[in-house]
Structures are given as structure tokens and as C-alpha cells.
Amino acid sequence: MSQIVLDVLIVAASVLLAASAVMALYRIVRGPSILDRMIATDVVLASIMCGLGGYMALSGRTDLLPVLIVLAMLGFVGSVSVSRYVSKSDSMTPGAEAGALSDFSASDWHMPKSSDEAGSGSGAGAGSSASSGAATDSDAWPDDVARGIANVADGPEAVTVRDEEPVVGLDSGSDPEPADAHEAEPADADEAELGTESEAVAAHPAGEDSAPKREEEPFDEHADVDGEGLGTGPDPGPADADDGPDDSDEGRGAP
């Protein structure tokens, strides 16, 4: 009697674990981004570990424990490596261009388009309080303040600094400053933890000052979200992932 109960329990557990692995596999195939695939791989790994543990418990052998240790120790390396280098262009499934607005539209940022998505209304309302709720295409608010992303065309000229302009780096401030600039500075340097967005903001004021075409583009918040415009070379990854102090001069003057 108890053997039957045991067998039923074992079979049920195996079926559940196998089903969870198969469903995670579906997400691996289907996942619209590489990060979805990575977390689905983590679920497959967790199912494997549970299955291995179950096998050890029920067949009376412990020589597989080192396998469990190694899986536990190193199972996260895949997700971390991929997320370290994920970039806008890598993560779309083929057939969609980088920068295509597939998941949501520009209006999700500051303008609630409809009220059916309960989130965007109050979220945008709260988030745009600083940007005074730009109802139109951010005419009321200077472009590069709206999330640090201006109406930048995805082209090298937009982020390239031309020769005749003086390049004013944000950390070259040596003029005698009024008091409030001093108190703005350390607070901004502290927010350098928000690494890649700082690169976007840093890249823009330098190259943006004379880009003539920013009014024509619709507000595209994808452009240079991480400072990954086409002119900036390979994706440097999250800037604050490197060790060493990076809030001294790298993110100075930028959030």
C-alpha cells in the first residue's frame, strides 16, 4: 500500500518537473528577448537540480552531491554574462530592427494614451511631474531633459562632435561656480550608479548642441538609451559594473 503511494508521488513529481522544463523550453524558443531566454534557462537548470536531488533522495545514493554543488555555484554565470553585455541591437528576435517600438510606444513615457492600461496613467503621471507632462512631442520640455534622450537620429552625425565646436566636457568645469552648481555636482556624482544612462546624457550635450535635426524626429526614447548610438562603438556594458571608483570623474555631472 505504502509502496503504491510512494510510486504515485514519485511519478507525479517527475511529471511536474518535466512539465516545468518543457514550459521553460517554450519560453526559450519564444522569448522576445535574450534575457527572457536566459531566465528560462535558469528555470530549466533549477528543475534539473530539483530532479537530481529527488533522484538522490529516492535511489539512495549521495555520490551525485558534488554535481549539485557545482550546479549551484556556477549556474548563474550564464545569466550574468549575457545580461552584462546585452545591448539594444542584440536582443530582438530576427525580423525586428533595433530600435523598433514593438513592446510599447513612445507615449508610455510621459503621455498616457489611454486609461485602459492602469499602469501607464499614474506611472506616467508620477514620472512626468518633473517634466511638466509634455503633452506634445516634448516641445514644452527641453529634449535632453526628457529622460536624457533627445530627438536624435540614429546616425553617426548626431553623436559625433564636429571639429569647429568646442567640446565642453561635463567634467571640465573650472569656472567660478555659483553655489547651487556646487551642490548639484556631488549629488549628481552620487547618482553615477545609474551608469549607462549617464553615458547617454554625457554624450548628448556635447554632440547635441548643434544637431539641427532634433525637432523633426518624433520623440524616440530608444535612441541612445544606453549611449549605444551607432557612433559610439561597441557596447561598453553597464558602466558601474567595473571595479574601482567610477563616481569620481566618469559620471561627474551626469546622473
Binding site: G119, A187, D190, E191, E193, L194
Partner: peptide
């Protein structure tokens, strides 16, 4: 999700929080 080490602020994403 993120942290602000100097100011001591943690930013977390919370599930089902509407």
C-alpha cells in the same frame, strides 16, 4: 534593480504592485 550607494537608496522592482 539599482542602488544609490552614496545616498543609501535602494531601488527595487516589486511584483503585482498597482
Amino acid at each position: 534593480i539599482d542602488s544609490d550607494r552614496a545616498l543609501g537608496i535602494l531601488y527595487l522592482h516589486v511584483l503585482d504592485c498597482d
